[in-house]
Design a protein around this nucleic acid. Structure first.
Lengths: 239, 239
DNA sequence: CGCTGCTTTGAAGCCCTTCAAACCAGGTGG
DNA sequence: CCACCTGGTTTGAAGGGCTTCAAAGCAGCG
């Protein structure tokens, strides 16, 4: 059930059998959420964190006029709100973008882990720092990359991250977000996202077929994005 | 010496005398860096973290064509690269924007803390999660706020953060960054930053005098920024 | 007192937005 | 089983916020 989560952790850190048991023991409850369901509301006091098992979710902030900005996409294996363990309430909402299956982990159990498993604690600390690294890369995208480059970068990132948890083919992966969702990730309008997608499609670089994204020309995509996966910390094994 | 750091921590968490001693004992060396000095280079393996004592520093990423994006500004009291403790190398540079005085904290000592002081570990975990919250707010700015609103928001944020460590007056604080630095924070060009500043100056909202920012009309500034300081987690005391 | 780096201003242009409407696919009910 | 409805996609035309390019103004400093 939490195999994807373990895949993600082990891609970067050593996890002992003891630690694995502790993780498995930390899960309390499994839930399912429909698409568009806000399962964590900003500013609400929290007593558990949410591990995503299936589906795509996001962290979302917005402005008074309704302009929305997604600050991170979450995929299966991610702890979508591990940071709420230390923050106690969040500055953003968490929304299921597709139907999602999640596992809840009570903060009380995380606290036990933090008392009894210093190394595992550092692993989870690392996990929230990885989220922050993704935020920084998105800041670079939002601040300095063109619309086309931003979009290309997002698909490169998803391809790598989904690959780690066994959810991506060599050049494609399931993708069921709307163009509006993409626009909310990229700080663009739907209209412009549509035009950029059209351009990439016509150049034979990125396409969609039956709910799957197809990275038809991956090297061009990476080139357009100036994609450097170092920020995803794939080759590090800290202790 | 690390009083500002303690002020920052205690603003949000209880720190016992034991813990304070552990923190003081963790500092090894004090250094001074000139303005524009890159004191941490991306991708380089690290064995210490850097506590900022005086001056302003930033986290910076860039693109091949030289476009720069600052992902966070650091003020006295901040651990500028506490996240390198778990990440081991960084995805960005750390640069002194003004002359800076810093204290180095070896990762070995942080590791000791993480083994012996679970609560203090959570406090530092919290600190890196706070940086991530700032990243998210900047993502919202970069993606969805207008240039004027973005700039106003940055000054509201600095005013609050500097206030916590005793470095802001009611309506002003020392500010010695260039308009280029601001542009790199805001994802804009210097030229446009200059025009926005002119506009705010003429409206009597924000001015500069002898190296200090003057928030002449703070309520307008907050209004323009849609500033809500919740993301700075000022009123939380997690355990 | 002339460098040097930062600020300021103008003119022109482009990337992305806004507004508006048509198109299309999938699900529902008559 | 088709007609309809709804939400998402696509396209066009016009406009605006910010950039680009270029150059002048200005302040601090050796």
């Amino acid at each position: 059930m939490i195999e994807r989560h373990l895949l993600k952790l082990r891609r970067r850190n050593d996890i002992s059998d003891d630690e694995e048991r502790a993780i498995r023991g930390a899960v309390s409850e499994v839930r399912e959420y429909p698409a568009d369901f806000t399962f964590i509301k900003r500013h609400k006091e929290l007593h558990h964190s949410t591990m995503l098992l299936e589906g795509l979710a996001c962290r979302l902030k917005d402005l008074r006029d309704g302009e929305r900005q997604i600050s991170e996409l979450h995929i299966p294996g991610d702890f979508a709100d591990l940071h709420s363990f230390t923050l106690k309430h969040l500055d953003h909402d968490l929304i299921a973008l597709t139907p999602c299956k999640v596992a809840l982990v009570p903060h009380a159990r995380l606290k036990e882990i933090s008392e009894r498993f210093p190394h595992l604690t550092r692993v989870y600390w690392f996990a929230t720092n990885l989220d922050a690294a993704i935020h920084r890369e998105w800041e670079l995208s939002l601040g300095r990359r063109s619309a086309t480059s931003r979009l290309a970068h997002l698909f490169c990132e998803l391809h790598v991250r989904l690959g780690i948890v066994g959810l991506a083919g060599e050049k494609e992966f399931q993708f069921r977000l709307t163009q509006q969702d993409l626009a909310d990730c990229l700080g663009l309008t739907v209209v412009h996202v549509n035009r950029v997608l059209k351009d990439l499609r016509e150049r034979g670089i990125l396409g969609f077929k039956s709910g799957r994204a197809q990275l038809l020309d991956l090297s061009s995509l990476k080139e357009i994005a100036e994609f450097d996966p170092t920020y995803l910390y794939l080759d590090l094994r800290p202790r």
